[in-house]
Computed example of a mutant assay.
Amino acid sequence: MELNDLKRRLSLAEDDTSKDDFLQVMLSDAIEMAQDYCNQDFMVDGQLKLPGGVKMAIVKLVKLAQTKPNLQSRSISGGVSETYFTADDLAVIKGDLAPYVKAVFC
């Protein structure tokens, strides 16, 4: 998953580079978290090949990292409201990743 793919999935303009450094760090961290959680590296022929469900979980992790802690939603003048992630969202992300978890036997 590349930065521009993440930006498309987040509905961000690809030519807006103001958050690219942050997004790249978060993307790398989220991929690593998914790999660790799933006990696999998703490498095929030396290239990272993330299934769609894993990509969705990564996008959700990045969104979660952008939210303000202890704030679940807010209303903005003009009738616009925003809803942020809650603690239950981590369970949803784990559910997205569940089909890709490989068992590890010691």
Score class of each variant (00 low, 15 high):
residue 1 M to A: 09
residue 1 M to H: 02
residue 1 M to W: 05
residue 2 E to R: 14
residue 2 E to C: 07
residue 7 K to L: 11
residue 7 K to R: 07
residue 9 R to N: 13
residue 10 L to Q: 04
residue 10 L to C: 07
residue 10 L to E: 03
residue 10 L to R: 06
residue 12 L to V: 02
residue 12 L to A: 07
residue 13 A to V: 07
residue 14 E to V: 12
residue 15 D to M: 00
residue 15 D to I: 03
residue 17 T to A: 10
residue 18 S to L: 11
residue 19 K to T: 09
residue 19 K to P: 02
residue 20 D to G: 08
residue 21 D to V: 13
residue 22 F to A: 14
residue 23 L to G: 10
residue 24 Q to M: 09
residue 26 M to K: 15
residue 27 L to D: 08
residue 28 S to Q: 10
residue 29 D to W: 11
residue 29 D to E: 15
residue 32 E to C: 05
residue 32 E to Q: 11
residue 34 A to D: 02
residue 34 A to T: 08
residue 36 D to Y: 02
residue 36 D to W: 04
residue 37 Y to L: 04
residue 37 Y to I: 00
residue 38 C to F: 02
residue 38 C to Q: 01
residue 42 F to E: 01
residue 48 L to N: 02
residue 49 K to E: 11
residue 49 K to P: 00
residue 55 K to S: 04
residue 55 K to Y: 03
residue 58 I to M: 04
residue 58 I to H: 09
residue 63 K to M: 15
residue 64 L to Y: 13
residue 64 L to A: 13
residue 65 A to K: 14
residue 65 A to I: 07
residue 65 A to S: 15
residue 66 Q to L: 15
residue 68 K to W: 09
residue 69 P to K: 14
residue 70 N to M: 14
residue 71 L to E: 14
residue 72 Q to N: 12
residue 72 Q to L: 12
residue 74 R to A: 12
residue 75 S to T: 12
residue 75 S to C: 08
residue 75 S to K: 13
residue 75 S to V: 13
residue 76 I to L: 15
residue 78 G to M: 05
residue 78 G to D: 06
residue 83 T to S: 14
residue 83 T to L: 09
residue 84 Y to L: 14
residue 85 F to C: 15
residue 87 A to T: 12
residue 88 D to C: 04
residue 89 D to I: 06
residue 90 L to T: 09
residue 92 V to W: 03
residue 93 I to M: 00
residue 94 K to S: 04
residue 98 A to T: 01
residue 98 A to W: 01
residue 100 Y to Q: 00
residue 103 A to F: 05
